[in-house]
Write a protein that binds this DNA or RNA. Structure first.
Lengths: 198, 198
DNA sequence: GCGTATCTGTACCGATCGGTATAAGTCAGA
DNA sequence: TCTGACTTATACCGATCGGTACAGATACGC
């Protein structure tokens, strides 16, 4: 057995690397020099480059879900949570700056060529949609979110907008424009007889 | 000089290949067998793999802009054009099925590693936004599109939604759900005192 | 101090990458 | 039919890929 790598630390660094350069753009040499261990240790710990990649995808999934759930829960009510979360996610900054969504990047780079990765990505989006759906349902009960559309469709709509924003940030769209797009996106949630809460 | 390749035909096939497998995922062997000519001919005609890729990006740019402009123009009025165009773009099917947006794929795969490609992608999105903005302005003059938001922001919002949909289609989101997301997205365009034209 | 077991890192594997030199083939003009 | 210009395709280049065999270093029991 090779050196006992600090798995979490190593996964985190590998995630950053894959996130920056993609799967094919990240070589084993880049990985070993970043992780601080040699190839045999990496293979002893993770099996293969692809398996390591899948683990970083799972790590990302957990990271995103925890982060979003936390943002949604820390607000006083459901609607406020949705507002602040979407604004943060559609704006730039933080760890994701200019790197897009790792799940999206994976889906696009590998396409149908890696079914395992594709499955994790699909599951990540499904879980993300579920997190939003639950909060939307709370908002609908509160009366702060319109009820003439199903929480499911509204959640899908929000995820759609978030992923779009993750793309646009890669094309250097201005922060100011994206803030307004976020505001527009959120105004969809307003109950029919109410104007935007701005 | 190598054999005179039918440039348009060759570019079209190369575009399909790059679109399916990405830049790094497309080898020169794949290109030559698909284009039906050997490597020296490809290099004589296009210079390098990267230059060929940039040309396919430009070809895609033209393809998309012409297509969208055509869809917007064939409707009886601006709003109808926006509605049908967005619905078509956010639904699946056609040539883009399950392949996402080639410009987006490029932006995500190459990131900052190919500034030339990045510039073309940025320009493609800017041009696409402009096409929508002009039609939105027509709609605002017609009174079929709300005027309390600038045409610029509304256009950016639409492009944002389209790109999000291009991602979601890669994650096997259902057609039905995406139709509803498109309807929701379009309802943003409604003038304030009007319900969705559904 | 010595033998032994464990782990690390070097050095290498075959395959494949993008790219090219060069030989083989083709066709026009006489 | 022969020559010569030009296009084709083969065969190869060094570099790099993901992955591994193996020898050298290290720590520990005695």
């Amino acid at each position: 057995m090779a050196r006992k790598i600090e798995r979490e630390e190593a996964l985190d660094r590998a995630l950053t690397l894959f996130w920056d350069h993609g799967y094919r753009g990240t070589s084993m040499d880049m990985l070993t020099s970043t992780l601080g261990v040699e190839k045999p240790s990496v293979y002893a710990s993770f099996g293969s480059k692809q398996k390591l990649y899948l683990e970083t995808l799972l790590q990302y999934r957990q990271l995103v879900l925890d982060s979003v759930q936390g943002m949604l829960d820390e607000a006083p009510d459901a609607r406020a949570g949705l507002d602040s979360t979407i604004r943060k996610l559609m704006a730039r900054g933080g760890r994701t700056e200019r790197k897009g969504c790792f799940a999206t990047n994976s889906a696009l780079e590998l396409g149908d060529e890696d079914p395992e990765a594709q499955a994790i990505v699909r599951d990540t989006f499904a879980a993300l949609t579920t997190v939003f759906r639950k909060t939307i349902q709370r908002g609908q009960a509160e009366g702060t979110v319109r009820s003439d559309w199903s929480a499911d469709v509204l959640a899908q709509y929000l995820v759609n907008g978030i992923e779009g924003a993750r793309i646009m940030e890669r094309t250097k769209a201005s922060n100011r424009a994206m803030d307004q797009v976020a505001a527009l996106t959120l105004s969809i949630l307003d109950p029919p007889n109410q104007t935007s809460r701005g």
